Computed example of a mutant assay.
Amino acid sequence: MRQSPTFRRATRDDLPQIVRLLADDPLGASRESPGEVIPECYLRAFEAICADPRNELVVAELDGAVVGTLQLTFIPGLTYRGGERAQIEGVRVSADQRGRGIGQAMITWAVEQARARGCRLVQLTTDRRRPEAIRFYQKLGFQPSHTGMKYHLPGP
């Protein structure tokens, strides 16, 4: 039987591993800056997430090692009769742990957090260039219901 991961809020000490996870695919490799010294931009973002009660940066652990991460954001809104929605972002599983049920456990955990909070909807986006991720999310019950659009702004 496979061991199930445990979930907890990320700490500042987790940042090097989280950034490595975010960079560990062709899309992330071109936009992230992993390393032992974490650039200040990640530290500022981490502090902002921690200070926001509607945001949770979460890690999944096996035997004390970080093997996955995701960000869960709760968004208030008027739609769905004023129902709150949960947004799942930045889902990553360590390359050496993929295919072992960790991603499914992470998403199931996030959906349960949203359900316990009374959210009316759980949403996520994934890049069209990740067909395996699209199949994975559909297998878990997510439906491609909308066309997502992004407008990238120049960075510092």
Rank of each mutant, 00 (worst) to 15 (best):
Q3T: 14
I49A: 01
C119M: 07
G155Q: 14
E40W: 15
P34I: 06
F136Q: 00
S4P: 15
R54W: 12
K150P: 08
F136D: 00
V19F: 09
V111C: 11
D13Y: 09
P53S: 06
R54M: 11
P76S: 09
I88E: 08
R44A: 15
P154V: 09
A23N: 14
V93Q: 00
R20L: 06
I107K: 06
R44I: 11
L62Y: 02
H152C: 06
E61Q: 08
I107H: 06
P156W: 09
G83L: 02
D13N: 11
A48N: 06
R98T: 10
S145I: 11
R128L: 11
C50H: 04
L43I: 14
Q87I: 13
P144R: 10
S94G: 13
P131A: 00
L140G: 05
D25A: 07
Q17N: 05
D25W: 14
D14M: 03
R100F: 05
T126C: 08
R8A: 12
R85F: 09
L78W: 07
A86V: 10
R44S: 12
A86P: 00
K150T: 15
D52R: 00
G83W: 04
R85V: 14
L153F: 11
V111T: 06
Q17M: 07
F136P: 01
G118C: 05
M106L: 09
Q3V: 13
Q71K: 13
D25F: 11
M149S: 14
G68D: 04
A65P: 13
L43E: 15
I102N: 02
L124N: 04
I134W: 07
G64L: 01
L70D: 03
N55G: 11
E36A: 15
H152T: 14
G148E: 15
A65T: 15
G99I: 06
R12I: 02
S33A: 11
Q97F: 09
G35T: 08
R92S: 12
L22Q: 12
T108I: 05
Q138W: 00
P154M: 05
I107F: 08
I49N: 01
P76K: 02
T125E: 13
R20D: 13
E32G: 04
R92P: 11
I102R: 01
T108A: 07
A114Y: 01
V37F: 02
E84Q: 12
L15V: 04
G77A: 10
H146W: 15
A133C: 01
A114S: 01
S30P: 03
Q104A: 10
M1R: 10
T69Y: 02
G90F: 14
A10Y: 08
R130Q: 07
I107Q: 07
Q104P: 04
V122R: 03
Q71L: 10
F7T: 01
Q143G: 14
E89L: 03
A23W: 15
I134H: 10
M106C: 14
